[in-house]
Amino acid sequence: MSSSEELYLEYQGLLFPRETHSAESLKFAQEFTLKDDDVLAVTYPKSGTIWMQEILPLVLSGGDLTRVQTVVNWDRAPWLEETRLAQVVDKLPSPRALVTHFPYSFMPPSFRTSKAKVVYVMRNPKDILVSSYYFHQMAAFLEDPGTFEEFMEKFLDGRIVFGKWTDHVKSWRNAELGDRILFITYEEMVQDLPASIRRISDFLHQNLSEEVIQKIAKHCSFQSMKANTMSNFSLCPKEYMDNDKSHFLRKGRIAGDWKNHFNSDHLARFKSVITKELEGENFSLPWSLD
């Protein structure tokens, strides 16, 4: 079993997987020049990143399916912080779709001076915990999660990649970006994907027709993405992700899977820590912690 030191790179106080990140790639990201028409999907891990990698390029291209059917998602809307960005960024059509797990403080200075927009996807942290627990079991580049109880403590303490969920959410909710940022929840996307795509389209001034909205929603359904080799990570070598242990797209998109994993002690512990972490913040969560 690989140690945390072998698997993770510590950079400015946060842990990053060495498999996809390097000190050079993180420096490249923080010196990256963002354009005014760039659009970033910002998420804490396991909050809907892959879904947004599918949605954003389609919204920005007016529903053209060509790239989502011919270019793997990690090249179609690459991560700002990963080593892959430097290899593909010059091939990205404009307007560019990018994704990042960075907290706000890690964003490059060019982001603050540009007009680049952000779609920030929030998800119930209890469901993030469950999804992340299974992902750690199948991703060889992440530390073995141990028991569910052990992993919960790591999650709450921020001893996992990208740190505490609460720190990430606070950093972006408190960023003063005005009309440059749209907050949307994973749960509202699950409940009504066409309506969510319409919100994103309007935010980005794309003015998509209802026909195109429905076309994008159909293509971005769980069933469609799971069948698309450009989107389901089946092309990722098994030594990186073992789909025999747990599929990357593990379940149909549902909200509330945490209820199948949390007992009353888990719930009390989770609520106590998250409530304390968010005490005094000027925003409220869209979900109950009970």
Rank of each mutant, 00 (worst) to 15 (best):
N263G: 12
L40S: 03
R159T: 11
I197W: 03
M122Q: 09
W287K: 04
E150C: 06
G158A: 08
K276C: 14
T229P: 09
M52P: 00
K117E: 02
T70M: 03
A116L: 09
P125G: 13
V161T: 13
D144P: 04
W172P: 02
K238E: 05
R112L: 15
V119T: 11
P237R: 03
E281S: 14
E211K: 14
L26V: 14
K91P: 00
G256R: 11
P125V: 13
D157S: 15
K154L: 15
W79C: 03
L193T: 03
V72T: 14
P109D: 13
G146Y: 02
G252Q: 07
T275C: 13
E31F: 07
W51L: 12
D167T: 09
R269C: 09
T20R: 03
M52F: 11
S132W: 11
R253Q: 11
N73A: 08
D202G: 05
T147N: 03
H247C: 01
L249E: 01
A195F: 09
K218G: 09
P17R: 06
H261I: 10
L9Q: 05
L193S: 00
R198K: 15
N263W: 07
T100C: 10
L278M: 13
F28S: 00
L9C: 08
S264A: 14
F248A: 01
F111G: 01
N232M: 06
D36F: 14
Q30R: 08
R159Q: 12
F16Q: 05
P103H: 14
D90P: 00
R159Y: 02
I254T: 12
G48C: 07
E24M: 09
F32D: 01
R67F: 10
T70H: 12
G62E: 02
W74E: 02
K238N: 05
L65N: 00
V42E: 05
D244Q: 10
Q12C: 11
V212Q: 00
P57C: 08
Y133V: 04
K259S: 12
F148W: 06
S132C: 08
L60V: 14
E10D: 04
P237H: 07
F183W: 02
F102R: 00
F162P: 01
F283L: 10
N260K: 11
Y120Q: 00
S61T: 15
M52W: 04
G158I: 08
E6M: 12
A227G: 04
E279H: 13
S4K: 13
A175S: 12
L15S: 08
F222N: 01
N73K: 01
L278I: 08
E239V: 07
N124Q: 08
H205Y: 09
L85W: 07
H219D: 04
R96Q: 07
G158C: 06
F155Y: 10
K271P: 00
L285V: 12
Y133C: 05
G63E: 05
K218I: 11
